[in-house]
Structure formats: C-alpha cells, structure tokens
Design a protein around this nucleic acid. Sequence first.
DNA 1: CAGTGGTCTAGACCACGCT
DNA 2: GCGTGGTCTAGACCACTGT
Lengths: 269, 269
Amino acid sequence: MADESTADRYRERVPAPHRQPRYRAIADELRRRITAGAIPAGALIPSESSLTAEFRVARGTIREAINVLRAEGLVMTEHGRGTYARPNLPVRRLGPERYMSQRQQDGDETTGARSFRNSGVEQVNAEYQEVAATPELAEMFEVEPGTVLLQRRLLTSVYGVPQQLTTAYYLLDTVAGTPVADPNREPWPGGHVAQLQSLGILVTKIREVVQARMPTIDEAEALRLPAGVPVLIANRRTYADGRTVEVATSMVFPADRAELEYEIPADLT
Amino acid sequence: MADESTADRYRERVPAPHRQPRYRAIADELRRRITAGAIPAGALIPSESSLTAEFRVARGTIREAINVLRAEGLVMTEHGRGTYARPNLPVRRLGPERYMSQRQQDGDETTGARSFRNSGVEQVNAEYQEVAATPELAEMFEVEPGTVLLQRRLLTSVYGVPQQLTTAYYLLDTVAGTPVADPNREPWPGGHVAQLQSLGILVTKIREVVQARMPTIDEAEALRLPAGVPVLIANRRTYADGRTVEVATSMVFPADRAELEYEIPADLT
DNA sequence: CAGTGGTCTAGACCACGCT
DNA sequence: GCGTGGTCTAGACCACTGT
C-alpha cells in the first residue's frame, strides 16, 4: 500500500517532505480507525503521550492532528479524562406544535427525532432582567428607544444536556406585576404563546428567521458543543393584532442535536 | 479573589494572570476590533509577527488566538498574504413567498437581506435523471421501492455566486412527457408549486425540516465555501390532498449568505 | 497520587504571494 | 528577496479527573 512509505516517514527523524504534513497524515490515520470501527463511537482514543510515542513526533503535532478531527466534529475532548470518538446523539426536533397549547406529540420513527416538550425531563435555567430598548428592538416594538423591556435569558436542558440558549424580550408594561414576570415560574407551561394568552394577549402570527453559523466560544461552552459543530439560530417575532408582543433575538440550538420543522399551509403558497 | 495566591505564582514567570488564557484574551481583543469596525470587513488583521510584538507572547499563542476566530468564521487566512476579517456577503433571505406564484417581494431594510426570485440574476444549472426509489423515498411517496422517480439536481447561482444545491424527486408517472420533465426549461417560473399546478396538481401543504452541519468537501467546493462556514439544510416535502407529490431530500445553503424565513399562523398555535 | 489534556515558550525551517 | 502564514521541535508548568 501507499501507506507503507507513510509509515516509514513517521520513523524518520526530521527531514520529512511536506508533501502532506505529518499532522494531516496522523489525522487521516486516526480518522480511519474511528470510521472503520477500530475505535468505536464513545470510546477513548489513545492519549497524546502515547500517540507521540507511536508516531514519534512532538506533542504539538499530535495536538494539531486532533484539532483537525475536532473541527470535523469527529472527536470531543474532556480535560483530564481524554479524547473520545464522538457518540451519536439523539436529535431533538422542534416543530410548529411547540407553539400549540397542548397536544399529542410523538417521535418520528424514521429519524429518531423526538420532541421533549412537557415531558418533565426538560429543565430551564432562567435569568430575568430589565433593560432599555436598543434602537432595533424599539423599532420592532414600535416604542421609543430606551423604553424598558423585560429580558428573559434561558438555558434549556433535556436530561441534563443543554439544548437551547434563548434571549427574548417583552414590553415591561404588558408583563410587569404579572406571573409572566416571575423568573421562578420557569419553565412556562405551554410556552410563551400560552403565557401571553393568560394575560389576555392573543397571538395571531409568529415569524421565524433561521440562520446557521459557528458558535462563539461562550455558546460552545454553554451548549457543550464539540468543535466543528455549528449552531442553528432562530430569530422569533410574535405578533398579536399586528403589533409585536415578543421578540427573541436569538434562540441558539446545537446543530448536532436539534432540527427545526415548519409547515407552509396552502393559503400561503 | 480566592485565586490571588495562584495569580501571584503566575506573575513570577509570566506578566498576565491565567485566569483567562492569554490566547483567549487576545482572541477577544481582536474580535472586538473586528466587530467594532476598527478592522473593517475584508481588511487584513495585523500579521502574526506584529501581534507577537504587540501582545508580547510567543507566536504559537498568537496562532491559537487566530484559530479561535477562524473556528468562529470571523476571519479567513490566505497563505503568504495574511489573515482577513471575513467580508460581509449579501444575505439571501428565503421566505414563504418563494412558494407563492407571484408577488411583490421587497428587501428587508433592517438586515439588508434580499430575495432574488424572478429577478433575472438567478441562474440554474440543472441535471435530470431517472432513478429507482430507495426504501425511504418509496415510503414517503407511498409506492413500492424501486418505482422510477425523476431526480432533479440543481445548482442555483445569483450574480454568478453559487447559492443553493438541491436534490428533489417526483414520481415519474406524474411528470413524464410533460414540460416539467424537461431540464431545458430551468429555471422554473414560479417555482415547483406553480409547475405542479400546471399539471393539475394543487399543492395543499409544504413541510420543511431545517438542520445545520459542516459541509462535505464536495459541497464546500460547489458552493465556494471558506473554511469555518457551515451549511443550512432544508428537507422539503410537498403534499397535495394528503399525498406526497415532491420530496427534496436536501437543499443545501451556504450559511454565510442565506437565511430561511417561516411564518406560523395563528390557527397552528 | 498518577495520568490526562491545556497553555505557553523560543526557537527552526518550509511554502506561498508579492514586488 | 522579503514578509506572510504553515509546520515542527523539545521542553516547561498548570488544571482537571480519576484512584
């Protein structure tokens, strides 16, 4: 095989031609072991020090090889424990029914995607704060910039696995003094639509814009994202009677364990 | 802080306390300069050697900081030339109106996102092929596996910039011999809904599932994606009278220049 | 405690893009 | 030729996870 000369190159001391960098060749070899099943999903790959011995390179070179695999989402690292082949995660599907008051919600057999709403395994870490409206937010709410809004920041987890970061805003006027402004009532039964309804606000339309990008480091840490996994971003705007009653400037989902589902009814086509 | 003794120990050897790693602090500072506009989009950031001088750290530390920004998709590097703040691309917004027959479509002033449908600057590279239904496709169309389908593969470009890869399927029975089966008629005026309507098929519902992931190498090349940019994936299923009449197993969008918009009407909430 | 990965240094030489 | 980033070495010490 052509691999023989590659193996020989590992044994050389320094001169290795850079036709293919060594860290790439090492990454290729480790990737082969993982995809071929020699290192099963969820198992530890050899430690950095044993890899330096096996390939006879400096530790920095091994780390670069592992960086490649991390960027591909193939492995994930835990400080002090080791580096694992990435296990396959269950996918959380978020469909239009997440805005319904209450309904039967079954998993999708074909993909294994599941909805966890109201299942009792969903925990919410909430943080409420009063903030002044930025010009962008003020325009969406049709108020003066600086008007006080209620900011609601959430980290939602399922089975202890973080699944969603949310930053949402409400006009303080419409929620102040109501149970909706109480952070201890999280998670909201029925979601934000039901909560607004309890205040007499009838939601008429929700608009969401979906984007994707690589996470910031903070997001990657909060969502425990391995490197190489992007995030799905949904920006939500909730309307009642043509007025904007809620804005979620960013709902951040880990793309390796979430997908969004939408329906476009006939009268829109 | 309780960490003071620890911090003191660091100061013996290194000026900066490691409460936050040096490379992350440097990444934060560079990110600030880029997002604040001190380094405009498309401009070169300082070279690695000048950054080692400015922050007084080893070159490896500077490179790690830049790796952070690259993983976030904030900068891109060209060997021998330098590292750039990633230029902002015009964003193509795809809303529900893309399935409407014909309507006024304006840009969104707040984000600069635009729709290019029917604007004449959209080119389509089409490839049609007859294929046997896989078990998954057969189940969706409610036919026997192996039933012949028309496969439609598209690369859509706007102003010569590739914007979308599509793979869609139709039952050959319903389209054979019709203008819809003619690859020379791309791009389809009014989209696939209008085309189906011209065959007497009235679309009643469209369902889309949106995901994100890093691109395969082939996708990255076809869409001319720089490293660190994920793709948005939409899987579409088109219904008429409860029957599935079209399936797009993957519409692949470059996440740095596309976003998807959906509406959830009141009767769904 | 031992073993893992995380951070950082101070060098070296190579490959690429420009002028 | 010069300045850029790409690759690599050989060490050091820190921080986290286990026993």
